[in-house]
Nucleic acid binder design. Sequence first.
DNA 1: GCGGAAGCGGAGTTCCGGTTCCGATTGACA
DNA 2: TGTCAATCGGAACCGGAACTCCGCTTCCGC
Lengths: 221, 221
Amino acid sequence: MSTPPPTPSSGPEPEARAIRDDATRSAPEPDAKPLRADAARNRAKILDAARAAFAEHGRDAQMDDIATRAGVGVGTVYRHFPTKQSLAVAIVQQRFAMILAFIRDELLPDPDPWNALERSFEFCASTQLADRGYADAVGTIAGGSPIAGGGPHGPAVDQIEEMLDLTERLIARAHAAGVVRDDLAASDMPPLYAALASIVQAGVPDWRRYIAIVLDGLRPR
Amino acid sequence: MSTPPPTPSSGPEPEARAIRDDATRSAPEPDAKPLRADAARNRAKILDAARAAFAEHGRDAQMDDIATRAGVGVGTVYRHFPTKQSLAVAIVQQRFAMILAFIRDELLPDPDPWNALERSFEFCASTQLADRGYADAVGTIAGGSPIAGGGPHGPAVDQIEEMLDLTERLIARAHAAGVVRDDLAASDMPPLYAALASIVQAGVPDWRRYIAIVLDGLRPR
DNA sequence: GCGGAAGCGGAGTTCCGGTTCCGATTGACA
DNA sequence: TGTCAATCGGAACCGGAACTCCGCTTCCGC
């Protein structure tokens, strides 16, 4: 795997901080209380546990299991996330933030636009490999449901917008270099990512082959 | 839609009979009791209702709902199918038999191998459109799980074998006509069908566009 | 028509997993 | 160190959905 998806950890790394803040901002109140030390620690443990649980079982992950993994009571989980849904959303948003960062910091700076495209598919596949819940998120975008924030598991609306914006730039560069078919649009990518994700999801071992096929379909006519 | 998937009905048409027998043979005992008249009638109603329910709600269809749709008590449903799972399997096998029939009777006789390939994708998409449960089945095959009969929703093992055999012939014809890339194998098709199914599933309206892209990826280099 | 075996229906049971409650615990601050 | 509000833990609660049970009904061979 050329680019194993870095699992976001709620450890002390500064990068993780930013991501968690990002996920947290979905709460109604802007910031307010600084959160007691142990509470903050537990919140981090819960997020880590939930990430693992959702990655393993998708939407079927169980709250009790998450609590156990986190070494915490269910009540504590519910103190931080009033609902299973809200916890799932937090996780998806985290993962999504990670993907956006990858596109922004790794793919767009890549001097070879075609190679960037290729890597975006690889990244998509390996993310899916690591996280069963990821497909749902991509599907949400592919479907273009505008009420993403309201829908189950959906990333935040502005995240989707940024995603489309970044993809737009990725495609624009490819067009400029003349390496893709004329009619390729940024909006084509989410469905293709979703398609690839489903192949990986199905457990097909040589998914790279299908990336190659799709990529061939994207070349200039 | 060039080829709307004919919904199998448990009505009196002879074709439907054959399909139901096919689904029924998954029972352990070969045949045995001829089933009382009203029982046979109810069984048919249940299968119809279940087909509708699964098509609408996928794996989340509820037994009570199925019973209601069939105008029958839950107990009756359970008399015919001891488990929700077994009912789902029966439905999937029916649908699968339909797909096999389509390939055998419509696609293989098509004089244009490329066109046959194209139609197979279209058929896959429109089937998915009509039946949410179908994607699960395709995914099962794409994953190549050998214990398909045991796995949830899986079509019978011999159905999968026939599927692969028919696809083999489809691809062989395409190769003979020189219209596809040299390395295309029959085993490539299930993953591609799964991929397409997921796009349709996501609610992307112009899924035909992605068929076209994938097909372009299948042309000779 | 009759008897009884096969089949029906749907209320009730069981299981499962999300959510709530509240007494015990702990961190923050004086 | 003492106080107390914030936080914790996990048993209990609750609703929903698969499945069971059994008295009633229907079909079918005589």
